[in-house]
Design a protein around this nucleic acid. Structure first.
Lengths: 130, 130
DNA sequence: TCAATAGTTCAATGAATTTTGAACTAAGGA
DNA sequence: TCCTTAGTTCAAAATTCATTGAACTATTGA
């Protein structure tokens, strides 16, 4: 049920580098970094491969300590473990993100996803402010 | 005869990360970084694997653009392409080197190699200063 | 309870990587 | 010229990695 995540101290440099040395996973991490304010679930990455394949790559990222996967109802929300990575390997993630090329995504779908998210946030704000 | 080296612009992030995502190659790079003032040849790394195997790993590093291999007589001198890597991926190499663990080497042999080098430098200085 | 959704696990397959020993090349020194 | 040193190349074996479809699990909502 609960998914394995290595502790910060268990995160290994060679493992992180080899896991990030793959264009699909680099694309996923780049997208997560540029969208830390949004809740991202697995299906957001189906542009990059089949459902099974994305599940495989996300498991690699999680087991390496690069991402966190939390079960939220029927979804799993994926986020970067930025603080843990920065603490363990200062400057590494930032230099990789700065150098990682932009991701080949369908930007209309990206916009749609983000619009839905913003609308949801808007409703939440409306509710709590009233 | 002359060995292939990618140009700085040809160096690819995912390739660099996957090539450095290997403990043997990370050890080689860490050693090169901590000994940039010395001339290092291939056999310096025989602690880490067989001659054939080290040749394989050094070729990977060279083809990824991480090291330069110059033929110097019967030896091949290996050096880090630090300037090229820094220009292409600012901060990446430094953050990796800062996080890379110390290498499991036979430190007596390391000391012997460095002593020989220092003695050679001493002779050169003596000659040029006189 | 039933269906739909989101994602995982499994087994199989193909591709790439790592490791090895044997044979090889090229340069330098006796 | 012959030997030694330094390192490469090749072919084979072992291992690991990536990708796929089919079957599965867990949660939510009707």
């Amino acid at each position: 049920m609960s998914l394995f995540h290595p502790s910060a101290e268990q995160i290994d440099l060679a493992t992180v580098l080899s896991v990030l040395g793959d264009q699909t996973r680099l694309s996923i991490v780049g997208y997560l970094a540029r969208n830390e304010d949004f809740e991202i679930n697995c299906s957001r990455f189906l542009d990059l491969g089949s459902k099974t394949n994305i599940s495989y790559h996300l498991a690699k990222l999680r087991e390496a300590g690069i991402t966190r996967t939390e079960v939220r109802g029927v979804n799993r929300l994926i986020s970067l473990r930025r603080a843990d990575l920065d603490a363990r390997f200062p400057g590494l993630l930032d230099s990789i993100l700065a150098s990682a090329a932009a991701i080949p995504f369908d930007m209309r779908e990206v916009a749609r996803v983000e619009l839905r998210q913003l609308e949801r946030d808007g409703e939440a704000t409306k509710g709590s402010v009233g």
